[in-house]
Design a protein around this nucleic acid. Sequence first.
RNA 1: UGGCGGAUCGUCUAAUGGUAGGACAGCGGUUUUUGGUGCCGUCAGUCUAGGUUCGAAUCCUAGUCCGCCAGCCA
Length: 564
Amino acid sequence: MNEPIEEAKAEAPTDFIREAVKQDLAEGRFQHVHTRFPPEPNAYLHIGHAKAVWIDYGIALDFGGKFNLRFDDTNPLKEEQEFVDAIIEDVKWLGADWEDRLLFASDYFDQMYTWAQDLIRKGKAYVCDLTPDQMREQRGTLTKPGQNSPYRDRSVDENLDLLERMKDGEFADGEKTLRAKIDMASPNINLRDPVMYRIRHAEHHRQGDKWCIYPSYDWAHGLEDSIEGVTHSLCTLEYEIHRPLYDWFLDELGIYHPRQIEFARLNLSYTVMSKRKFIELVAGGYVSGYDDPRMPTIAGLRRRGYTAEAIKEFCRRIGVAKADNIIEAAQLEDCIREGLNKSAQRVMAVLDPVKVVLTNYPEGQVEELDAVNNPEDAAAGTRKVPFARELYIEREDFMEDPPPKFFRLAPGREVRLRYGYFIKCEEVVKDGSGKIVELRCTYDPATKGGDAPDGRKVKATLHWVSAAHSIPAEVRLYDHLFNKVNPDKVEEGQTYIDNLNPDSLKVVEARIEPFAKDAKPGDRFQFERLGYFCVDKDSAPSRLSFNRTATLRDAWANVQKAQK
RNA sequence: UGGCGGAUCGUCUAAUGGUAGGACAGCGGUUUUUGGUGCCGUCAGUCUAGGUUCGAAUCCUAGUCCGCCAGCCA
């Protein structure tokens, strides 16, 4: 059992954050490690959040530290209990363990208020009467410094009194703010007297109407980390420029000071990764909901058939760095294929059936053939598959006039039916429009099980189902939601919506071997030669419904692409 | 044309002044009753120009390109 240790050592992920944490520990800046995942409960989590969870939780795990799940619920206008519940479910499903530390920033509002008063007493914060428009004007621009607010020099007592009255609801929304007194000429715009509190007479999902002033992100976030004793506050790159502010508040207050470190957020090819766009996609009816299997949400991926294990492996493989990136979707697909190849029950299903009649097979005869449940797992055993005179095969497995590298069925050609017999195509039957409606074939009784006693070979093995015994099922075939690697890269006058892939969902009527008849929502299968599929939540015993999780790798498809 | 950050195979990511390595994708082979899986091989990279050094992806200088910031969002 010393092999896994070797392996763990070799595969232990290292990255610039882990190096920094290691150094902090070595230098005594921190004595232990404590991280947190701080979602705002205003939307569903996506695969980018999974990356963040695995950085936060993974680092806590690696260093024997603690991990908090903390909701950053400082804006009552956007946040809802529904999202809190969904996020808890997703983070749990992903595999992170926050033990008993399910926390809410809103529980710290009293403490934050006290600290705001401290800052006022230090002359580092003031109540400002500027309207949003005025504040924008006076903030200056990227190249021009801002100007001081006329309310900047109010006395400590007046500020204290005004803040108290803001809290007590004396003023209307937007009438006043509490601002940090830093530097209106700072080249970093975030330091130009940022707002700490704004007035919002709104119902908070946990605090009800107790508060009518709410802390802004910059003011609140460091305090939350400090209160919880977080050592390393890990976040995405866009907060890098906020770090001076994060540090400023903590230093001015003189309270425990965590270290913020930023990493690049995840982008995936052929999709978008923003809450706002998710809302638009759902509201516009472009997808069926946040858990539409084409969405990169955790809920969508789960419904699509992805496992938490595959997502974790994906996060491990993509690493952590500071350069902007777009990860190829193939990278994610490989992770789910790797897992499902080892675990998925095999079954035969025909997505686009064409009838095959075995002219020399006795009418009314049915044989039960043995089929392997999972070639990667002998313990999975075997099952029986009914074989009869009339079968269905995949329409694309036959070509009347096959090109050179097409190995499958063609007139006069012999192929193997998996676990069945060799069959040979003798006749093609078409309807008036020229569409093939039936293939008349003969079978070789000596090849039962799939081997010829005379040693002759075939170049292809096809999947099939019995026409009479197979069951119908709805199968949803998914493709990329967008047809551009980066849907946000658009022409003048266009938006990412214009880059939607019109063929991202195709629903087909398939036939499946009877073994699958008792499949329950969430069950995963490999349809042989086609891909991995899972039973959708819409499925019913009377009406099976499958989602395609991923196709199998397809060498023939590559050949076809090359021939074009 | 303010500030902050970034740039290594097609895509991610290592190399911490000393052989540019791995994964995914691609290509080729092999095994195979899944054109799957496995196994083997292969293609392919340090943004540019100078400099320091015995030696530079790494350090210095000057450029180039990309991202983020002007919410009372997070």
